[in-house]
Amino acid sequence: MVESVLRATLLGLQLGMTLALIAAGLTLIFGMLDVINFAHGALYMLGAYFGTVIAGQFGSFWLALLLAPLMVGLVGAAIEILSLRPLYDRNPLYHILLTFGIAIMIQGAIIQIWGAQSRQIPIPDLLSGTVAVGPVNYPVYWLFVLGVSTVLIGIVWLAIERSDLGILMQASAHDTEMVSALGIDVSKVFTGVFVFGAILAGIAGVLLGGSRSVHPGMGFGIIIEAFIIVVIGGLGSFRGAVYAALLIGLVTAYGALIAPTLTELFLFIMMAIVLMAKPSGLFGATEAA
């Protein structure tokens, strides 16, 4: 009993931290750009596929972890500059439709290039096998994923709260006109935020690509989970996204112990309760409307 609870806790934390990487990008893009990015799951998937290719070509997981997210960042830059930039002054509905279309395109391109069968990123020997955590034998790779995601989330948190760049990002989101009048190229800041979110999603893709299967349906599979997290945490709130991601990760892991089939239902019920009680989410600003 104690063992399965401990195992579930570790698994939940790991799942939560990786989900936080995806949700953080989603919520940052929403908070700064006002864009609900349906293509975020597709970027995560792209990270995993780039990871399989690089790890397969060069036989190095570490190179994949380094390069694949950067490549996803490049794709993100192309998406932001070529398609989102002309649409900022439009109804956000069009952002949803646009990113939905892009997600479909990326999924189609992946099936076209790599086929529909599922793959996996080979993990290095250093990270394979299990290690004893108290009474539980736990896979080393999963601990590694937990560690890397936690450190990354910590760095991003500090960067947003403390660095000049983070403050510039917050200011651009708060008052675009004012920042622009101060001589700062706001559209570059926007591109930067989108690329940053894409890179985080790409990292999550490589990390989870080592433990889960990589297949063309994974993008749309994760996007709803990420949305639930962002909505529960509060749209646009980074802190909220991280806490909510941990919450969802743990609920999923414990739920698998108690009633596996109903876990998903429970996630939606949680989201509905939060939305009805406090529509702006647990950490969001109070509802504008």
């Binding site: 439709l97 646009l98 939905f100 279309g101 892009i102 997600a103 479909i104 395109m105 999924q107 189609g108």
Partner: peptide
């Protein structure tokens, strides 16, 4: 899917 998404 690429064509359909592209049209959107």
């Amino acid at each position: 899917e690429i064509i359909l998404g592209g049209i959107f």
